[in-house]
Nucleic acid binder design. Structure first.
Length: 416
RNA sequence: GUGGGCGUAGCCGAGCGGUUAAGGCACCAGGUUGUGGCCCUGGAGACCGAGGGUUCGAAUCCCUCCGUCCACCCCA
């Protein structure tokens, strides 16, 4: 038997209410903030990500789906959304538009990772990008929008964490200080941290190992090393967030896994700590466009995982709107089969949703079906109705019946 | 990529060396030859994740693989 590939899932009809709820909320939010949708290809030249996201990041070095196409080009299923959006910005000369360019996407993302709860190989992200403006008021707008999304969805108990990791000028100074601090402690920290010291020193800060905690607590923090170019906008951002009444926690240990982040970084996590808990995250990427071959252009955005949102909606038992049931279920006896099919067709042309029974079932069975579908009304056509050109219209919630001329059914229901 | 738990019908789940492999939900039919939701009766549905091995005998024990879950790595 064929099964969906490891780490992928089918989103079944009964789950669509949650998906619809999230995508409709996302669309409303974007309209509210003036972000327009952009759709980019599901695959890109692999080099876009190796250069943009960073060759040594896990996402690129061990999680990317890379393949060669028949023309010999090396392509990759996108492992994140920002690089593609920036590529499109450059390719289509969007610097010529009014800045910043505000776009959003809702798209599948692919990472060859070991699946577990809240982590799949194909998953969906909603993300926004504001490209072409470095003013911290845009940082505030993006952070606010991210926070607001969860509010609109009805999620509670979330924490917004904020930090600044500096720019290409001040960050090396910080990393040097961090390395120096750790240089005489390498015998005391865990194995992973010794690796991190070499490969990705910022990651030292969010090690979960018990033995490393005391060292993390006393480690130098990024905020103390920011140059004025970074600290001033960060202070401004904090002021804006206060003015917007967005509750945030300053987390000096917050770092991000992608190379392109600069200055503002933030993350939203549910209260209950779990393995794969981060629900959304973002930050500024002021060097990315230039790295990708564009003129120097600042940008900021965030992305959030739809599956993780839905996981939390379900955990918190947030009620989501159900799919509308058919207004009418058309049940019939064999001799009225054509009349029933015709009636269903006429109702639909009048904008009334109708599902017809299929032939060969008892009326009782058809009624059970109508009930299972949650139909508001059942129109029954038997011999008597056929002869008098009427239908027996039954209201399912209270069982009342009324005989109505076939031609009047649509207008009768339209007035309900 | 590392370590561990688990895989019995569509779903939940008992059985843990010899059973016709429980039970519940869902599904289908009937109890009402023109009527749903409750109830009752019946039916269908499982090569017990796959492959190999041990044994007279394996869903039950062992190995490999696959899947899933948890933790780590990392991340949405």
């Amino acid at each position: 038997m064929f099964k969906a590939p490891r780490g992928t899932v089918d989103i079944l009809p009964e789950e669509q209410a949650h998906w619809r709820y999230v995508s409709q909320t996302v669309e409303r939010l974007c309209r509210l903030y003036g972000y327009e949708r952009i759709d980019t290809p599901i695959f890109e030249e692999a080099a876009l990500f190796t250069r943009g996201v960073g060759e040594v990041t896990d996402i690129v070095s061990k999680e990317m789906y890379v393949f060669e196409d028949r023309g010999g080009g090396v392509l990759a299923l996108r492992p994140e959304g920002t690089a593609s959006a920036c590529r499109a910005y450059i390719q289509h000369g969007m610097h010529a538009r009014s800045q910043p360019v505000r776009v959003y996407y809702l798209e599948p993302i692919f990472r060859y990772d070991r699946p577990q709860a809240g982590r799949q190989r194909q998953f969906w992200q909603f993300g926004v990008e504001a490209i072409g403006e470095s003013d911290p008021s845009i940082d505030a707008e993006v952070v606010e929008m991210c926070w607001r999304l969860y509010e609109e969805l009805g999620l509670t108990g979330l924490t917004l964490q904020l930090n600044s990791i500096g720019c290409p000028i001040c960050r090396p100074r910080y990393i040097e200080a961090l390395r120096e601090y750790y240089s005489d402690k390498l015998d005391l920290v865990c194995r992973d941290c010794r690796d991190r010291f070499e490969k990705n020193p910022l990651r030292l800060l969010d090690c979960k190992n018990e033995q490393c905690q005391p060292f993390i607590a006393k480690a130098p923090i990024t905020l103390d090393y920011l140059g004025v170019e970074c600290s001033e906008p960060f202070e401004a951002l904090r002021g804006y967030l206060k003015a917007l009444s967005i509750p945030y926690e300053l987390n000096p240990r917050l770092v991000r896994g992608l190379d392109y982040y600069t200055k503002t970084v933030f993350e939203v996590v549910p209260q209950e700590e779990g393995g794969q808990s981060t629900i959304g995250a973002g930050g500024r990427y002021d060097s990315l466009i230039e790295v990708l071959g564009g003129r120097p252009t600042p940008g900021i955005g965030f992305a959030t995982g739809i599956e993780r949102i839905i996981l939390n909606l379900k955990r918190q038992e947030v009620a989501v709107p159900e799919a509308a049931p058919p207004q009418v279920f058309v049940a019939f006896q064999e001799e009225a089969r054509e009349a029933a099919i015709a009636l269903a067709g006429r109702l639909r042309r009048s904008g009334i949703s109708a599902t017809a029974a299929t032939a060969g079932r008892s009326l009782r069975s058809q009624m059970r079906q109508a009930d299972a579908l949650g139909a508001l009304y059942t129109a029954i056509i038997g011999r008597e109705e056929l002869n008098s050109d009427t239908v027996m219209l039954k209201r399912m919630n209270d069982g009342t019946e009324e005989r109505i001329a076939s031609n009047d059914v649509a207008s009768f229901l339209a007035n309900r």
